[in-house]
Simulated scan of single mutants.
Amino acid sequence: MMLRGISLARKQLFSRNFCANAIKNNVKSDGFRRFWKNTSVSGENGKVFVKLDGHSLKTPSGKKLEIPTTMQPLAHLVALEWDRLPTSSIRPHMLPVTSLFSRAMELTDAENEKKRVFDQVIKFLDTDTVLVYAPAEEYEGKLLKEQQKKWLPLKKAFEEMFNVQLKHLDGDVGIISNKQSIETHETIQKWLNSLNPWQLAAFERCVASSKSFILSTLLLQGSLSSEEVVELTNLELCFQTNKWGSLEDAHDMDHHDLRQKVSSSALVFQFANTLN
């Protein structure tokens, strides 16, 4: 059934709630054509809103998607994401910035959810991408040398930034428990507590995508670029593809997906710094 056959009243109600439900449920709505014609950005009461045909976007919980005025340039990027959607078959990868703002609002004044995020991201520090090294005999030790060359300086930079000492996994010993010290966790926890909801949402995505607390921190502090994080995250994969070749479609899609998630995280985090 096409949306054009629905009464005007039902159409207006649907357009108000569809955005929130689409993000929340990742609905597949191939039966509907795009129902909005225009996207716009407007300011009200010190906040910025993105609208579809005059109706504000909403979060999965039904709140209006509010964007701080200092982040207004990103509101236009959110509007562009929706303006470029060809149909109402919405997928998260089509809305990278929208979904980050939605996540940030869900984290606002939600202490239990923030604690859950803290617990999840800090776990990555124990088995961080940058802290897991290949065995010396693998690839004649060439992969290990490449990892040591590119990863050890990052480990050192992180340690100096937080005045901590990190343990790493030695490939010659095998995959064993690599729990960081209580003191390290406490220091990192204090830093996480200092992040505002927009920074935390961006950091959460970056860590989950790169599997690296260290790379994400250095990226969001401006020590690494998005492209460098993608390259360093895929160091072993790049080493293997240079040696054996790649599956172009699969590897290209994975690379694009990682780059999009890392880049959108860095962009939102940069603007979110203005809120502190």
Rank of each mutant, 00 (worst) to 15 (best):
N45C: 07
D30Q: 15
S177M: 05
E111F: 12
V97K: 11
M253I: 15
M71I: 07
L8E: 11
S226G: 14
T241P: 05
V230S: 10
P60I: 05
Q148R: 04
V268T: 05
P96K: 00
E66P: 02
F101E: 00
S42V: 15
R10T: 08
A79L: 04
L107F: 03
V48Y: 03
L77A: 06
I188G: 00
W244Y: 15
V50W: 00
A157G: 07
D53F: 09
S102G: 09
I6P: 10
D119L: 09
V48P: 03
G62D: 06
S225E: 11
V78W: 03
S226T: 11
K114C: 14
L77G: 07
L166R: 02
E186P: 02
K261N: 10
H76S: 07
E248W: 13
A201I: 07
K115F: 15
T129N: 12
L80H: 13
L85D: 02
K115D: 13
K37N: 14
F213S: 01
G171H: 12
W82T: 04
K28P: 06
F101S: 00
T241Y: 08
Q147S: 10
K179Q: 10
E231A: 08
K63G: 02
R103V: 05
H256V: 09
K190D: 12
V173I: 14
S99G: 15
F124D: 14
P92C: 02
K123V: 14
L80R: 08
S246F: 13
Q72H: 10
R16C: 06
I23V: 10
P135K: 04
F32I: 00
V268I: 11
T70S: 09
K51E: 01
E183T: 08
R205V: 13
S264D: 06
A136K: 12
L85Y: 06
K155F: 11
F18T: 05
F213W: 03
D53W: 04
V97I: 11
E106D: 09
P135N: 02
L13Q: 14
R16T: 09
T187Q: 13
W151D: 03
K11G: 07
F101V: 01
T127F: 13
C206R: 01
V173L: 12
S15F: 02
L237N: 12
E228V: 01
S210G: 03
K47T: 07
I122F: 01
I182P: 04
S61R: 05
H251C: 08
Q12S: 15
V130I: 15
T184S: 15
S223Q: 13
D30A: 13
D257P: 03
D126M: 08
N196G: 12
V164K: 03
S89P: 03
P92M: 06
I122A: 03
T70H: 05
G5W: 13
N234Y: 05
V229Y: 04
R116A: 13
S40E: 06
